[in-house]
Computed example of a mutant assay.
Amino acid sequence: MRVSVLFLLFVAQMVAANQEIKLSLSSQLDGGHSFYHELLYESLTDLGYKVSISSPSEHIPQKRVVKMVESGALTLTWLLPTPERDERFVVVPVPLTNGMIGKRILLIPPQLQSQFDAVNSLDELQRSGLVAGLGINWFDVAVWKTNQLPVYLADGEWRSLYRLISTDGKVNYFPRGLNEIVSEAELNPHLAIEQRLMLQYDRDFYFYLSPQAKEYQPIIERALRKAKSSGLLDKIITKHWGRTFQVVDPAKRVVIRLTTPNAKSQNN
């Protein structure tokens, strides 16, 4: 029996070796895409596929990315799951960052640290009046509103929020995923990583495929599940974000848990 199983695995690898998967993916000037590109390339290559990845532009704003995936101009993107996205696109139901994206660290003006020092609970954050900046179509908008936290919504390029964060303006803080915070702080030296808090909700990124690329769904799902079981996913996470745990030290932070609307299991 064991010989038969090994033979079938060998045959599957040989078949995959003769197939090429061509992916058209978005890229960003700040390198926010690099982990997802590498995860796809390495996990699919590990199954024996020949993989080629191209990007139609050096930088594509997220709002345009979603439209390009819908039209088939891009093969897929990575998004937090919502029922609307599950219906609109083809989801690959494997969480991608070990929940890092749902562990939110705040980018703030350094002068506001003393105000955040007084926050130790959701109730205190609500009463502080401090306003979060978020992208207009982000899942986080529903999370912040569910938890009765004030938000400012940026339409178009969400990176414009970096310039709007101030002590007394429209935006006082920008919640970023644990996997995003360090690199973005380094790119925006006028801002600081808030020192004490972590706002946490149970969500993770999924890959969402264009309907035109739905045939890749079972292949990518199999590749990602193997990457999780083999340790490849953890290896790539450590490569990209290992330093983050030293800089941010999430284990020592005050955790404020946020309620999520339309709760969906992430136990895949």
Score class of each variant (00 low, 15 high):
35 F>L: 01
132 A>Q: 04
15 V>W: 02
107 L>W: 10
152 Y>R: 03
246 Q>E: 04
222 R>Y: 06
86 D>Y: 11
12 A>V: 00
120 N>D: 14
51 V>C: 07
212 Q>K: 08
234 D>I: 00
162 Y>N: 07
248 V>A: 01
202 D>R: 12
236 I>H: 02
243 R>S: 02
233 L>Q: 14
22 K>C: 08
20 E>S: 12
255 V>Q: 10
173 Y>G: 10
221 E>R: 06
217 Q>M: 10
143 V>Q: 12
60 I>F: 12
196 R>P: 10
169 G>T: 05
31 G>Q: 13
206 Y>D: 00
260 T>N: 05
131 V>Y: 14
112 L>Q: 07
213 A>L: 00
59 H>S: 14
102 G>N: 02
71 S>H: 02
83 P>E: 14
47 L>T: 08
173 Y>Q: 10
113 Q>Y: 15
128 S>P: 07
22 K>R: 10
39 L>W: 09
226 K>T: 03
31 G>V: 11
207 F>K: 03
92 V>K: 03
160 S>Q: 05
21 I>D: 02
251 A>R: 01
191 L>I: 14
191 L>T: 15
103 K>W: 05
143 V>W: 12
103 K>R: 13
22 K>T: 05
129 G>E: 15
197 L>H: 13
243 R>K: 04
162 Y>L: 04
182 V>R: 07
210 S>V: 04
60 I>K: 13
228 K>W: 05
160 S>G: 15
114 S>K: 14
101 I>A: 02
85 R>W: 05
224 L>A: 02
88 R>I: 05
148 Q>N: 08
104 R>I: 08
110 P>R: 12
130 L>S: 01
202 D>G: 06
99 G>H: 04
56 P>T: 15
50 K>M: 11
32 G>C: 04
75 T>P: 14
219 I>Q: 01
144 W>P: 11
69 V>E: 02
140 D>V: 03
231 G>P: 06
265 S>T: 15
211 P>S: 05
203 R>G: 01
197 L>F: 15
181 I>H: 09
166 S>I: 11
